[in-house]
Amino acid sequence: MAGESVMLERELLPVGTMSAQVANHIGVRIVSGEFLPGTSLPIESELCQTYGVSRTTIREAVKSLAGKRLIEVSPKVGTRVLPFAEWNLLDRDVLAWRLQAQFDQKIVEDIFEMRLCFEPRASFLAARDGTAEDFGKIEHYFHELVAAYEQKLPIKATSESALGFHLAVINASHNGLFVTIGSAVKSALRVSSELLQQHAAQPNEDIALHDAVRTAILARRPSEAADAMTRLLAASRERMLPLTVDAAE
């Protein structure tokens, strides 16, 4: 990729749109390891030539990446890639880039370890503190998921229903931090959901696992809801891990 000219589509696109495209491209190159932590990005003029854009566009892209803590801009050392520990890993773009560039066992483990840390507790709180409106949304997405399976709708529709169900449970927790995390990791949840639906060999089992969560929450049985969500996530994790082997081959 280094030294390769990447002419981006510019017709009728404003600088902001172009800078986002450049930031996306450079972001993937960073998280994939092409630009290692501690090294410097190519100089501004070289990036302009590589992407076929103006200095203003490059500066906007660099500003965006700096805001995500992928890089640091210093007058003395230029634009330097920051260590992994400093990256804003909950940023939706950074998550999407990691999934695009590094879909391997490690990132799948990371995603499900994170989800297991807060989604069972969110289910507990949803059962304890959820409102009738919250329960209505959980019901809505559950029945939407069932209908998607029964009608054999496209994978994207099924995965969006599953995503809506999980976010409805998280929102029903009324824990502001959980809701913020759920919104931040939506891209990771969406990709996870789509991949799982592509390999949903046993739709009835998936429906049953979601139904157990729904039933416990609506019955206001917090501990059962937490346990049901743990079982759902564990089953999803076991279905997804083999996919990382397929992706690597």
Results as ranks from 00 to 15, higher is better:
245 V>A: 15
209 L>Q: 08
174 H>L: 04
210 H>T: 06
199 H>L: 10
222 P>M: 05
187 S>A: 11
217 I>E: 06
223 S>D: 09
234 A>H: 15
217 I>Q: 02
174 H>Q: 01
174 H>K: 07
244 T>W: 02
180 T>G: 03
242 P>C: 00
175 N>D: 14
229 M>A: 09
220 R>T: 11
177 L>Y: 07
205 E>Y: 08
184 A>W: 02
197 Q>E: 13
196 L>I: 08
209 L>Y: 04
243 L>F: 03
228 A>K: 04
207 I>E: 03
181 I>G: 00
213 V>R: 04
236 S>K: 10
204 N>D: 15
186 K>A: 12
186 K>H: 08
243 L>S: 00
174 H>W: 05
193 S>R: 07
233 L>G: 05
189 L>C: 06
202 Q>I: 14
241 L>Q: 10
228 A>H: 12
244 T>S: 05
204 N>S: 15
201 A>K: 11
211 D>I: 02
237 R>F: 12
182 G>V: 01
230 T>G: 07
177 L>K: 07
236 S>D: 12
220 R>V: 05
201 A>E: 11
176 G>F: 13
243 L>R: 01
200 A>K: 06
233 L>C: 06
226 A>I: 01
214 R>W: 03
195 L>R: 11
201 A>Y: 11
194 E>F: 02
219 A>H: 08
191 V>F: 09
191 V>R: 06
199 H>W: 03
243 L>N: 01
234 A>N: 15
225 A>E: 10
213 V>I: 08
238 E>P: 03
220 R>P: 03
234 A>S: 10
220 R>C: 10
186 K>M: 07
180 T>S: 13
219 A>W: 10
197 Q>L: 11
207 I>F: 05
191 V>C: 06
225 A>M: 06
199 H>V: 09
221 R>M: 12
223 S>V: 11
208 A>K: 14
181 I>W: 01
